[in-house]
Amino acid sequence: MTTVAFLDFVRGPLFQIAVAIFFAGLFIRFVEILVLGRKTDFSEPRQSGTGAGFKTVFSRSVPEAGTFKRSAFTIIAGYVFHIGLFVALVFLAPHIALVRDTTGLSWPNLPTPVVDFATVAAIGALVAILVNRMRDKVLRFLTGFEDYVAWTATFLPLLTGYMAFHHLLLRYELMLALHILSVELLLVVFPFTKLMHTFTLFLSRWYTGSAFGRKGVQS
């Protein structure tokens, strides 16, 4: 298969398959969580939990002083990675072009140097997090195969994307094909691994917040 044919294949049929698995997986997990629901709380609420739930979705993004002191590295590296990934994913012009082509929605892109900085920061943070995880005995013990899969699936698109945009190492068409392939891998494993937290995070935070709210305690 020529490189160009490979690129056509990953942009064509393989992308369709990956998108199908991603959306099917996403909905299976979401709908099942919602259908299963939680036990009804029969106690008389002190106040409505809804508002507290929404508040918690945001308030829990700010680490507590005590937690921050204990694991400053994890929190900082985590923030750098998540913000970097978000910027690269949402504000790189070719990514916006993809969204516009698919949905018609678009927004202004950030200058390439800014996106570059965010990408390199995210890549650096991911590497640092992995090294830290390998060196710490407890963390290493707690890390399973799935965690390494999740890490790899997130890392590869960032790395190949950066190299493709800047025409590094390989010819652009091959690197672009590898980038799209790595994204497809990410899409496929996404709903069935911890990467699902991207969406379920909001659900669980809201639930915790609302439960605390009903009880009238701070969350």
Binding site: A20, F23, A24, F27, V31, E32, L34, V35
Partner: peptide
């Protein structure tokens, strides 16, 4: 994406 989401939702309902 739409068809996959529909199938996924149905499967999620069934599993739930």
């Amino acid at each position: 994406a739409a068809v996959a989401a529909g199938i996924g939702a149905a499967a999620g309902l069934a599993a739930g």
